[in-house]
Write a protein that binds this DNA or RNA. Structure first.
Lengths: 262, 262
DNA sequence: TAAATTTGCGCGATGATCGCACAACAACCG
DNA sequence: CGGTTGTTGTGCGATCATCGCGCAAATTTA
């Protein structure tokens, strides 16, 4: 949804039509894959007539397909991720290292950055266990996972300046995703302090039952945290303690190797 | 450079701001990764002042990052591909089959659809040969490859109704990418007729030297060609004739298996 | 069949977007 | 070193694209 907060009033240079159109495009997500004008309007927070015009425009440009009444995402939207993946430095340098780690260990590795309340997967090397795809099988490039319940998200939150972290915590929702999710701001603060101290984060079954993950920050030479690297596995395949013992050194080494490159 | 059709602006019920904003966003590609207002303006075909406003809007919404003068794509653009991949039927059902093929053969398989002069990769299973990544290493999900010089592209062109094919050929550019690229409309017509007759396409070193690919159409139960499946390998690893002999049956079987699912 | 609800879309009013134009800055050079 | 030329940032009034109202058609419900 568009937020034109009056923080900086000089921001009159915004194209409303573009903001609305992207809000419409964003309202197609995992839950709502097919929308008509009415539904798109309420999801994007605009009027039905406006939603219709924006949907028609997006369909004409090829980003949506339509049967006349309903609209859904067209493959053309992949153009943006293709361009991002081809040009952005981060995924380009991180990807080979993730492949190396996956080949060496047989586990799945990802690299994520934060976007608001979510982390976005920008690189990933999933192991392909013939037959069973138990492991976070819905996680693609570009997947968005809640920042408070993921190892990568917490590493990225822990890297925020105190003021920013506090501000975020004040406005965050922290939904409980499993029985193990830390969904209380105070408890999460304590967790984040631990992450800062230890410089890694272990998240066991907080996002999905049976799944655990271990993340470390990826910093540049000036010490800015640019992203988080993590490894994901099933709890019944490797107990948490063993995960840390075996994988933390590998992740830290990868982060060190990548440091001059990112 | 690909001109973005001005016809879209002529159509009633189109939001000009949205069309321009997306043209601006599209002007970031592999060649031009960082743009300032002037460059974006000329690439998107709008005035500098307008480009500036649209860039600012996109940056505020989080789709672009900026240092004040230059702009580049932010990871948030992956949101669209994430949504597409999670919801679209085609990649969801095709992906596992591609993995199976790759695991069985040790070669790389893709699924592509057409978008204008390009094919868009919507699913892919690349083999990860430890160390050497000779194989079309720049091809990601969402990559766009020229339709006339790729096996998948030709399968998709061959499936067009005659009128549409002729119209496309009349306006197409057919750039020569290697010494082997068929870049003449008449010759391409002959190739496409062969593809129709054989119901597969072999493209040897037409897109990239040392690379060959074999594609078959993926049809639904009503006979509509929805996409193309292909396998890519190095010419020195498997001679063209052998590629067809060994891989064509597998691709055809995969297409048959997927037919009721797509 | 009628009533209730949803959807498609035309239309005139209005305010968002347009690009001109000028100032500030940078680069080049005679 | 000052003059000249090219580039960039952005304010401003005019204009035309966008707004959402509201009706009619389509669809659903009773």
């Amino acid at each position: 949804m568009a937020d034109y907060l009056p923080t900086s009033l000089a921001r009159a240079d915004t194209i409303a039509g573009l903001a609305k159109g992207l809000a419409v495009l964003e309202s197609f997500d995992t839950e709502r894959q097919r929308l008509n004008a009415t539904m798109a309007a309420q999801r994007a927070g605009i009027t039905r007539a406006a939603a219709r015009r924006h949907l028609l425009t997006l369909a004409h440009l090829g980003y949506l397909e339509s049967d006349g009444a309903y609209y859904w995402l067209a493959p053309k939207v992949l153009r943006f991720s293709g361009a991002y993946m081809a040009t952005a430095r981060l995924p380009r340098v991180v990807q080979p290292e993730l492949h190396r780690l996956a080949a060496r260990t047989g586990l799945s590795f990802s690299c994520a950055v934060r976007d608001g309340d979510f982390v976005v997967i920008v690189a990933r090397s999933a192991v392909r266990e013939s037959g069973d795809r138990l492991l976070a099988h819905g996680v693609h490039l570009g997947s968005r996972l809640p920042v408070h319940a993921t190892s990568t998200g917490r590493v990225l939150l822990a890297a925020l300046p105190d003021a920013e972290r506090t501000a975020w915590l004040a406005g965050a929702e922290l939904p409980r995703l499993t029985a193990h999710t830390v969904s209380d701001a105070l408890a999460l603060t304590a967790v984040l302090n631990d992450v800062r101290r230890l410089d890694y984060c272990l998240a066991v079954q907080e996002h999905e039952l049976g799944i655990e993950a271990l993340a470390v920050p990826l910093r540049d030479m000036r010490g800015n945290t640019l992203a988080a690297l993590n490894v994901v596995t099933a709890t019944n395949r490797m107990p948490p303690r063993e995960l840390v013992a075996q994988m933390l050194p590998l992740l830290q080494e990868a982060a060190r190797t990548l440091r001059p490159l990112v």
